[in-house]
C-alpha cells in the first residue's frame, strides 16, 4: 500500500499561470483572512450566528468522517454533541477548571464514549446501525433528565454557565473572543481531519466503506478502524458540543433531542458526503434556513428539512460540494478545450 502513487495529476495542471494546488491554497488563505476580519465588521447577533455555524461545521465534520468516509451510519450524533456540551457545563459548574481546558476533556470523554458505542456497532450494518443510533438519540434527553443524575446535570432545568472573558490585554469583546476561540479549534480540528483522511488511514476508511470484504482481504483491520472512527467522530462532535455550550451559555436536556441528530444528518447530506469543505455549506444550511422558514409556520422548518433530504437524494446525492466540484470540472474541461 505504501507504494501507491497518490500524488495528484492535478498538480501539473495550470490555470492562469498557477497550478490548481496553489490556487486552492490561495483561496483557503483568503477565506481564513476573511474569517478573521469578520467579527469586526458584523453585528454581535450576526457574530453569534457565525460562531454557531463554525461550531456546527466541526460537528458535521465529525459525522461526515463516520458516515461520508467510513460509510457507518449515525442518527444519534446529537447524543455525543450533548455529552460534550454537558461535560463542559458540569466541569465549569462544579470544578474550578478554566474554560479552555474543558474542551479537550469533553473531546476525550466523547472519544471514549464513541469508541465504546462503536464496539457493538461493529456488528451492525446499514439499517441496523441507523436503528441503534436512532434509539440512542431518542434516549439521550431522558438520560439527562434522570433524577439520580440531577446533582450533576441539573435535571430539567439544565445548567447555566458564564461566557469566558477574553484574555487580559486583548482589546476585543467577549463574543469576539469566543468566536476566535471556536475558530482556532475549528482550524485545528480541520487540519487534524485533513491529515487523518489524506493518508493511509483515510484510504483505509474509504476502502472499508466501498468494499469491506476487499478491505479486510487487503489486511485492513476493519474492526479496529471502524470503532476507532466511531470514537474520533464522536470526539469531533463532542468538542463541537462543548464549544456550543460555551456559546449558548446554557445546556438543557431538551435542546439535544432526536431532531438535533437529524439536523446533523441533513447538514452532511446537503453539504456533501465525504467532503471536508462541504460541511460548511451544511452548517450554513442548518443554521440559517430553519430560522428563515420558521417565520412561515411552525411546521415549515421540519417540512423543509424533510423535503430537502429527499430532494437531495433524488437530484444531488453528492450535496453542494459535489455540485461545486461538478461545475469546477466542467470549467476545467472548457478551459482545456479552449473557448469556442
Amino acid at each position: 500500500m505504501a507504494t501507491l502513487d497518490t500524488s495528484r495529476p492535478a498538480a501539473a495542471e495550470l490555470f492562469a499561470g498557477l497550478s490548481l494546488r496553489t490556487w486552492k491554497l490561495v483561496g483557503l488563505a483568503a477565506v481564513l483572512v476573511a474569517a478573521c476580519i469578520l467579527p469586526f465588521v458584523i453585528s454581535s447577533y450576526q457574530l453569534l450566528l457565525a460562531t454557531q455555524v463554525i461550531v456546527y461545521a466541526v460537528a458535521l465534520l465529525g459525522l461526515n468522517i463516520l458516515t461520508g468516509y467510513n460509510g457507518q451510519f449515525s442518527l444519534g450524533h446529537g447524543a455525543f454533541y450533548a455529552i460534550g456540551a454537558y461535560t463542559t457545563a458540569i466541569l465549569l459548574d462544579k470544578t474550578g477548571i478554566p474554560y479552555w481546558a474543558t474542551i479537550p476533556a469533553a473531546g476525550m470523554i466523547c472519544l471514549v464514549m464513541g469508541f465504546l458505542f462503536g464496539l457493538p456497532a461493529l456488528r451492525l450494518e446499514g439499517h441496523y446501525l441507523a436503528l441503534a443510533t436512532f434509539a440512542l438519540a431518542f434516549a439521550m434527553p431522558q438520560l439527562l433528565k434522570f433524577k439520580d443524575f440531577d446533582f450533576l446535570t441539573g435535571g430539567v432545568q439544565g445548567i447555566v454557565i458564564t461566557a469566558p472573558d477574553p484574555p487580559a490585554g486583548l482589546p476585543i469583546r467577549a463574543d469576539q473572543w469566543l468566536y476566535f476561540f471556536c475558530l482556532l479549534w475549528t482550524v485545528l480540528l480541520f487540519l487534524l481531519g485533513w491529515n487523518l483522511l489524506r493518508g493511509r488511514t483515510g484510504r483505509a476508511l474509504v476502502a472499508i466503506r466501498d468494499h469491506p470484504l476487499a478491505a479486510a482481504t487487503m489486511g485492513i483491520d476493519t474492526a479496529r478502524y471502524k470503532s476507532f472512527t466511531f470514537g474520533v467522530s464522536a470526539m469531533y462532535t463532542g468538542i463541537a458540543g462543548a464549544l456550543g455550550a460555551l456559546l449558548a451559555q446554557f445546556v438543557s436536556p431538551d435542546s439535544f433531542d432526536l431532531f438535533l441528530s437529524i439536523r446533523f444528518l441533513v447538514g452532511i447530506v446537503v453539504g456533501g458526503l465525504a467532503s471536508m469543505g462541504g460541511v460548511f455549506f451544511g452548517a450554513i444550511f442548518i443554521e440559517f434556513v430553519p430560522n428563515i422558514a420558521d417565520q412561515l409556520s411552525k411546521a415549515a422548518p421540519q417540512a423543509l428539512y424533510g423535503g430537502v433530504l429527499i430532494a437531495c437524494m433524488y437530484v444531488m446525492p453528492s450535496g453542494v460540494a459535489g455540485l461545486v466540484r461538478g461545475i469546477g470540472l466542467r470549467l476545467k474541461r472548457w478551459t482545456a478545450a479552449g473557448p469556442p
Partner: peptide
C-alpha cells in the same frame, strides 16, 4: 442504505 435511510427520515 444511506440514501434509503435519508429518504425515510425525510419522509
Amino acid at each position: 442504505a444511506l440514501s434509503v435511510v435519508a429518504v425515510f427520515i425525510g419522509l
